[in-house]
Amino acid sequence: MVLGGGLRPLASLLAPGGKRARLSVLIYHRVLAAPDALLPGEPDAMRFRWQMELLARYFNPLPLSEAVRRLREETLPPRAVSVTFDDGYADNMEIALPILQQVGVPATFFIATGYLDGGWMWNDKIIETLRRMPNGDLDLTDMGLDVYSLVNTADRLAAIEQILAWLKYLPGEERERRTQALTQHCHESFPRSLMMTSIQVRQLRQAGMEIGAHTHSHPILASLEQASAEQEIATSKARLEDLLGEPVRLFAYPNGKPGKDYLQEHVGITQNLNFEAAVSTAWGVASSRSDPWQLPRFTPWDRTPSRFMVRLLWNSCNEKTSIG
């Protein structure tokens, strides 16, 4: 896929190398076999392929660990970009990995270890419950919500968005209890293949991809006592190191908004646990002056190549040297 011939020089100007280097870090969660109207933010295989082809053609994709090291050393090439995935969905291995290998783009996969081998995250339970509900009214007034008319896909998507927003920042145990109550409205069982298996994590690493920690149960760290937050982070690191037989040096904060989802004390925990870098979801591009334990990232929502490239170029102008 070829765009304008001036894109590479423009990208080099906005994202130079060396002492003035800038690093863009992209966030993905899933890559779907086909578009899904209830998962509008997740790319399908076709969209993901052309995005990776554009990165390979116009940018310099690097493993995140190498990019962070070279950013510190001021040897990063121009147009540097790193691709990351959060959570540990099986489609990362089944759909994304073959595309990454074919186009020659490395990636880092941050794994929430508590969901390996058959687990389900609470938000996925909500989405799939609403997907499976028959047409008609869903009365959730007993949970402090509304009566939702589920007639078409737009209705279901609107209900999902409202319910997820309501549950997201509840205390973990209460959120799980309310999620369980809602899923009882659906009598279909969920498959055990949504998240990766331990074997698939090993296969990703054997394929040359990087593996990072993403806590054990994906909590809002800011809602936890410090000891519990440290246990969450340390447990995921230890389990992945045991699984892979090597140190795990990269970490991603769940949800990742600084000052809201994680606090400065959690940055200190990642340093004390010997992580070499950690990533947030603060939008922007990193430079050698950025905090390596709070690197910014952004999500490429775009559905056309031109918009995707514009977002990458625009992001290169938004340097983040400090967060919080």
Results as ranks from 00 to 15, higher is better:
L3M: 01
G6S: 14
R8Y: 01
L13N: 03
P16I: 02
G17L: 04
K19P: 05
V25M: 09
R30Y: 12
A33W: 14
P35R: 10
A37K: 03
A37S: 12
P40A: 01
G41F: 12
G41M: 11
E42D: 09
D44F: 05
M52H: 04
L54M: 14
A56E: 10
R57G: 06
L62V: 06
L64I: 13
S65W: 10
A67R: 09
V68C: 09
L71F: 05
L76N: 06
V81N: 00
S82N: 08
D86Y: 09
G88C: 08
V103L: 02
P106G: 07
A107K: 09
F110Q: 07
T113Q: 03
G114D: 04
L116S: 13
N123P: 06
N123S: 15
D124C: 04
R132Q: 15
M133I: 11
N135E: 14
N135D: 14
D137K: 09
L138G: 08
T141M: 00
L145Y: 02
D146E: 14
V147S: 02
S149Q: 10
V151C: 12
N152E: 15
D155T: 00
L157M: 00
A158V: 01
I160C: 03
E161Y: 07
Q162D: 12
L164V: 12
K168D: 03
Y169C: 01
G172F: 11
R175W: 07
R175N: 11
R178D: 05
Q180A: 15
M195G: 05
Q200F: 07
Q206I: 09
G208P: 00
M209N: 06
G212W: 09
H214S: 12
I220H: 02
A222S: 15
S223L: 14
L224A: 05
I233D: 06
D242P: 00
V248K: 01
N255D: 11
Y262V: 01
Y262H: 12
H266Y: 03
V267W: 03
Q271L: 03
N272P: 08
L273Q: 04
L273Y: 02
W283M: 14
S287Y: 01
S287Q: 10
S287F: 08
S288I: 07
P292K: 03
Q294E: 13
Q294S: 13
D302H: 11
R303P: 08
R307C: 14
N318R: 15
I323Y: 01
I323A: 11
G324H: 11
